[in-house]
Design a protein around this nucleic acid. Structure first.
Lengths: 155, 155
DNA sequence: CTTGAATATTTCAAGCTTGAAGTATCTATC
DNA sequence: GATAGATACTTCAAGCTTGAAATATTCAAG
């Protein structure tokens, strides 16, 4: 056991450096996306995320389904959906058998607006990750899978 | 040029998948850290980040130096430092030659509290990234360097 | 049918975050 | 030493986020 100590200590520091760099890189790009959404499209990342979820489900999603997909709290979604509804990008429709629930759907306007956002978004990512070729990307996906499995069991 | 189109389109989708997975993995661990800081140590990640910056500079940092290191706005730091000062974890001291500026330093209590937080934090990261051995970590650091260079020029 | 637990959602207080606007101070130039 | 611009910081409104508490509704026993 004595000879294991020499290698364990530096490894935890190395892992910490990986984490800090990962955090920096992710936040840098995320902040860039937030800034562009605001400056070029007059919207926010949370709004974009909700619209992206709804775009994947044309039949609509219940409030709790949105918060589940996005892994955020229920109360959070209430506010964001309120604002998107004010902008006419989505509507809340009653669920026939259950008066507690509501189904949220993109409007036609919402779908059009999101199509523009999604295209721009994909371009930003493509630029930012331009240094990754197909092989790099594949290896990165694999390494992230390993990392995610180690960190949590969800999904 | 015609034969390049076939490969370019899937690559941007692949990069998007890498980004979404990177975002998911990073946020999952970050949320976990926030939760543990709150539940086990009654503090927050922004407070931890400010204390970590100050711990690296025993002579203290000016408000603008903290916001520069953490890449957040100036007004943000004002509020967080206010709350940490209320808790007695740091103090603001006047800068001799400049009455506009203030130097912020951890108190002895602040240093003690941070030592506990930092140790716990390193343990959480070590657990979460436990799947990465030294070679994996080295490759990950290298790949992130490539990615960061592609995305921005800062630092 | 009534009661109680579970479910779906909203409301709320507290904190984080930003960019813009405001205050105070410093510095360079005349 | 007046003044114009730069610098350091705070204040503010708006939005995001959370967990806890409140509402309303459904469902499962009895």
């Amino acid at each position: 056991m004595a000879h294991a100590v020499d290698t364990k200590e530096p490894l935890s520091k190395l892992r910490l450096r990986v984490w800090l760099k990962l955090l920096r890189a992710t936040h840098a790009l995320e902040d860039d996306i937030r800034r562009r959404l605001r400056d070029e499209h007059n919207t926010t990342l949370p709004r974009f995320d909700v619209m992206a979820a709804l775009d994947r489900f044309p039949k609509g999603l219940k409030m709790s389904e949105i918060s589940g997909l996005l892994r955020v709290s229920n109360g959070n979604i209430t506010g964001i959906v309120d604002r998107l509804a004010d902008e006419g990008l989505l509507v809340r429709v009653a669920v026939p058998g259950d008066r507690r629930a509501q189904r949220v759907r993109l409007t036609d306007k919402g779908r059009d607006v999101f199509a523009v956002l999604a295209k721009a978004h994909e371009g930003w990512i493509d630029d930012a990750l331009g240094a990754l070729d197909a092989d790099d990307a594949g290896r990165m996906l694999h390494r992230l899978d390993t990392l995610v499995k180690g960190a949590s069991d969800a999904e």
